[in-house]
């Protein structure tokens, strides 16, 4: 990863992901990613995909006993997605389309 922040933004484009998912697909430790996500969060590039509303949690889901995400330790960020600013940034560094 020569540009880790851009790679994270790329991984979040179109698909909101959780920290463990990012960690798995990028092959970086969650600890290392957490700081980067905090930077992107502070810069307004990512936001929580689902606003935490108390009742929106795994506890109400009938499939939680089968779910891989339930019960894992993801205290800070749940589901992250790009903000408009993040999308714009990503579009800027994207390769030129073939005319």
């Amino acid at each position: 990863m020569t540009s880790p922040l851009a790679t994270i933004l790329g991984s979040l484009a179109g698909t909101p992901r959780t920290l463990p998912e990012l960690s798995r697909s990028l092959g970086s430790s969650p600890q290392a990613l957490e700081g980067m996500l905090q930077t992107l969060y502070a810069g307004g590039y990512v936001q929580e995909a689902v606003q935490n509303q108390g009742d929106c949690s795994c506890s109400g889901c009938s499939l939680k006993s089968m779910c891989r995400n339930f019960g894992d330790e993801t205290p800070e960020f749940h589901l992250l997605r790009l903000t408009e600013r993040g999308e714009k940034y990503l579009n800027r560094i994207a390769p030129q389309p073939v005319p």
């Binding site: 790329g10 979040l12 179109g14 994207a94 390769p95 073939v98 005319p99």
Partner: peptide
């Protein structure tokens, strides 16, 4: 090195996501 990505590529978005940047 990646030079360009077809604008009508069915996976254009996903490829960008994964870091198919110039």
């Amino acid at each position: 090195h990646v030079v360009a990505l077809d604008a009508r590529h069915p996976l254009r978005r996903r490829l960008l996501e994964l870091g198919f940047i110039r």
